[in-house]
Simulated scan of single mutants.
Amino acid sequence: MKRNRWIYAAVTMMIIAMGLGSRAFSSVLPDAVNPYLGDSLWAAMIYMGCGFLFRKMKTMMTGMISLSFCFFIEISQLYHSDWIDRIRDTSLGGLVLGYGFLWSDIEAYTIGIALCAAIELLVLGIKERHKM
Rank of each mutant, 00 (worst) to 15 (best):
S76G: 08
K56N: 15
A17I: 13
R86P: 00
E74K: 02
A117W: 05
K58E: 05
I46H: 12
N4H: 13
G112L: 01
D31M: 06
S27Q: 10
S26R: 05
I84E: 08
T59W: 02
T90D: 00
V96H: 12
D105N: 15
I106W: 01
R23W: 06
D85F: 10
P35K: 00
D39V: 02
S66T: 11
I73H: 01
T12K: 02
L102S: 02
G63P: 03
F71S: 01
K56P: 00
L124S: 13
A17W: 11
I15K: 00
G125C: 04
R55S: 04
C50W: 09
K2R: 09
F25V: 02
R86A: 15
L53H: 06
T90A: 09
L97Y: 15
V96N: 10
L92P: 04
I126H: 06
D85K: 03
M18E: 08
M13W: 08
E107M: 07
G94S: 14
H80V: 04
L97M: 14
T62P: 01
G112K: 00
G125T: 01
G49K: 03
S40G: 15
E120P: 04
M57W: 01
I7R: 12
R88L: 07
S27M: 06
M14F: 14
I73K: 12
I126F: 08
V96F: 14
I87S: 06
E128Y: 11
W42E: 08
T59L: 05
S91V: 14
D105I: 02
G21F: 12
K127G: 06
L95E: 07
T59A: 12
G49I: 07
M57R: 00
A44I: 00
S91A: 15
R3E: 01
I7G: 03
L20Y: 12
R5W: 11
A108I: 05
I111W: 01
L95K: 03
A44C: 02
R88I: 07
S104T: 15
S81F: 11
V96P: 10
M18T: 12
C70K: 01
L41R: 02
S81M: 11
L78R: 15
G21C: 10
C50T: 05
P35L: 06
F69Y: 13
H130K: 11
N4S: 13
L124D: 12
P30S: 12
V96W: 11
G38A: 09
D39W: 12
L115E: 04
M48S: 07
A108L: 10
S104V: 04
A114W: 00
M13T: 09
H130D: 03
I65T: 14
L97V: 09
G94I: 05
N34A: 13
L97T: 07
Y47G: 00
I106L: 14
V11A: 12
L29H: 11
A9M: 13
I84L: 15
I73G: 12
M61H: 14
D105W: 11
T62S: 05
T62N: 05
Y109L: 05
A9N: 02
F101P: 10
V96T: 09
M61G: 03
W42D: 09
